[in-house]
Design a protein around this nucleic acid. Structure first.
Lengths: 108, 108
DNA sequence: ATTTTTTATTGTAATATTGCAATATCACGT
DNA sequence: ACGTGATATTGCAATATTACAATAAAAAAT
């Protein structure tokens, strides 16, 4: 196989998995951290800061973008990225909810 | 390639990625939820509840176990799983820390 | 118009992940 | 000892992911 049988799980479970999977690579963790720390961060800056090739960074940016976590602004030649704080909040809430519920259930 | 260049990232970034990657599959989300909700949960119960083949569930259990999130107790023929609450707490703290720091940085 | 800069896309290779059938293992009951 | 039940392991096929070189595209500068 190789593909995930998403249809046998509910939306909440798939949402939790989608968000955590998006974070589940150190390059993407690093990209999100860097963007949050640097206003006017473009792809080139990430390439220099992280040390992966430009297409690789671009690919990871695409993965993060798919979840809606990134805002983009064109300024001259550059494309500046920033964190979509609403989506970050949603992501945090979804993941935290999972932890809280799991912990509560454990303590019953 | 296909492999992750972990060495170019720091321990914290790799830890965040390792934990979130472990959660980043709906079957593993489902397994963790089910174990937390059912005392004396064994592999067979998960196979019936989730609807993936036994080797597949066993493989996912292995992935979760690698991070230390599972306790095991042998009782008769069965192997009962439960959540290691200390590790769950650590996992929650690591991931939440990532969200908090990212949010704080965004708001500067 | 040409060059430069920036980023995305395409193509490709290597590796990892997902899923299952078949099998092995190990403990219990007979 | 033998069969049964529970779980892990092995082997395999299909797909996904990671990484990068080469190329395309689009905007700004010369």
């Amino acid at each position: 196989m190789g593909f995930t049988k998403k249809h046998i799980f509910d939306k909440q479970q798939n949402d939790i998995a989608t968000f955590t999977k998006m974070i589940g690579h150190p390059a993407r963790v690093s990209i999100i951290q860097y963007i949050s720390q640097n206003k006017d961060c473009n792809c080139n800056a990430l390439v220099k800061a992280i040390g992966l090739a430009q297409p690789t960074i671009s690919q990871h940016l695409g993965e993060i973008r798919k979840t809606g976590l990134l805002n983009q602004t064109v300024k001259g030649k550059s494309l500046f990225y920033s964190i979509n704080q609403d989506k970050l909040n949603e992501c945090r809430r979804v993941v935290n909810d999972f932890f809280v519920k799991t912990q509560v259930n454990c303590s019953k």
